[in-house]
């Protein structure tokens, strides 16, 4: 039996909106430590890893490790029926082929149950070891979304280069080229407005903008985004979920041959 009560139900709604276009079906894994998911897009170019720690739930009961296969489009349809202020409880019984989402209004005057069919999903699970990155850029998530959107109107790929000068986002397309350089800026009123560049070595990598733009659907989850780059690894684009965990997107680079 599992019962996970999330007072800030809007977080789960936002998580689904952030990942449902990238991944169709996924197994949600529930253990004593938390509620998590790892899934790749259909072309295996991108991967999403979600963690919602048990401590972030008001009530968290998970008697044994469980994996629940869900169609994220259908899950999103159900969660859209929850109000933004609603408390969401996820309930499941051992061996059941359904999961129940319960939505409670903050004043407890409206309570709704939505039962969704589970599915058997044969998904590959990748081992992602901790890694040292050549450069880590932390910046306002809205600024990153703006840059990805702007560059996608010019070209299909973005080159992200980190040097001691700053971080440069470049693209080229039929109509011309674009370069956007951000310098480290920590003299801001609010810490979430800062751009922080930690660089061990200069690095330059090329990525498909279509995926980057998909990742920015997580923008509402966090004021900041952390971009970790290494020449031998996929980029990691991480949105922290306040006090609870994170959504991390991994994207394999394009390589010149």
């Amino acid at each position: 039996m599992l019962e996970l009560r999330l007072v800030q139900g809007s977080l789960l709604k936002k998580v689904l909106e952030a990942i449902k276009d990238l991944v169709n079906d996924a197994n949600f894994d529930c253990s004593s430590s938390g509620f998590s998911l790892q899934a790749m897009d259909s072309s295996h170019v991108a991967l999403v890893a979600l963690l919602l720690r048990a401590e972030g739930f008001e009530h968290y009961r998970c008697d044994r490790n469980t994996s629940m296969g869900m169609n994220l489009g259908n899950m999103s349809k159900m969660l859209k029926c929850a109000g933004n202020d609603d408390i969401i409880t996820i309930k499941g019984d051992d061996g059941s082929d359904t999961v129940t989402f319960m939505f409670e209004s903050p004043t407890q005057d409206k309570i709704a149950d939505f039962e969704m069919k589970l599915m058997d999903i044969d998904s590959e699970h990748l081992g992602i070891p901790e890694a040292e990155y050549q450069a880590i850029v932390t910046m306002p998530s809205s600024e990153f979304a703006r840059i990805c959107k702007d560059l996608a109107s010019i070209g299909d790929t973005v080159v992200i280069s980190v040097t001691k000068e700053g971080v440069k986002f470049s693209t080229r397309g039929d109509i011309g080229t674009a370069n956007i350089v951000l310098r480290q800026n920590t003299t801001v009123d609010k810490p979430e407005d800062a751009t922080v560049i930690e660089m061990n070595e200069p690095v330059s990598l090329t990525f498909a903008l279509r995926y980057m733009n998909s990742f920015t659907k997580a923008t509402s989850l966090s004021n900041t985004v952390k971009i970790s780059l290494s020449s031998e690894l996929p980029v990691v684009v991480e949105y922290k979920i306040a006090e609870m965990g994170y959504v991390r997107f991994y994207l394999a680079p394009k390589i010149e041959e």
Partner: peptide
Amino acid sequence: SVLQKSMFDFYQEY
């Protein structure tokens, strides 16, 4: 030409 790498080029399945 530009080659799009996949997740399997970097990480092992388990």
